[in-house]
């Protein structure tokens, strides 16, 4: 009797441990990517149609932030103070100061008719510190998973429930 009991305790511990390993390794990968790419969000999901047909809703972009100066034509992700959602648009104008190296940047979505001045919350230009990263790579469709889960939360709960159940009941 005692040996069976200890076996069960062992199994539960083992399951908890492997679940912990999964969570921790996901965290390590994410934080590691943050260090390598130099941005706080190494991967973003495209949410709007403003860059179509290049980037569609649900595509994901890989970001990189180096010390290289921002130049026209680059696709940057920026976040204006007082707005929650970062925006992925292309740089169309750059004015770089000679003495301080500060830059004034203007962006525009490829699919939009107008530039982004109206999105800058009253500022005439974007500055360097608004830029979270520049897009360097692209993967289609993968972001749909997160879009569906944020817009239909019950799917997320069902998924987590089923995965948790599988985790507990699996004998392996």
């Amino acid at each position: 009797m005692d040996s069976i009991k200890s076996l069960q305790v062992r199994r539960t511990l083992h399951q908890a441990l492997s679940l912990g390993m999964i969570i921790v390794s996901a965290l390590i990968i994410w934080k590691g990517l943050m260090c390598i790419t130099g941005t706080e969000s190494p991967v973003v999901v495209v949410l709007s149609e403003s860059m179509e047909p290049g980037f569609r809703r649900g595509d994901i972009l890989f970001l990189h932030m180096s010390r290289d100066p921002i130049r026209a034509g680059e696709i940057v992700v920026y976040n204006v103070d007082g707005r929650d959602i970062p925006i992925v648009h292309r740089v169309i104008k750059v004015h770089e100061r000679r003495d301080t190296g500060e830059v004034d940047i203007l962006t525009k979505g490829d699919n939009n008719d107008d530039d982004d001045i109206s999105l800058y919350a009253g500022q005439p230009w974007l500055q360097r510190h608004h830029i979270m990263g520049r897009a360097v790579g692209f993967l289609p469709y993968v972001g749909w998973a997160t879009i569906i889960m944020t817009e239909k939360p019950f799917i997320k709960y069902i998924l987590i429930g089923v995965l948790g159940l599988l985790c507990i009941t699996s004998k392996d």
Partner: peptide
């Protein structure tokens, strides 16, 4: 004033 001006 500016070391670089790029205008699309």
């Amino acid at each position: 004033k500016n070391a670089l001006n790029q205008i699309s």
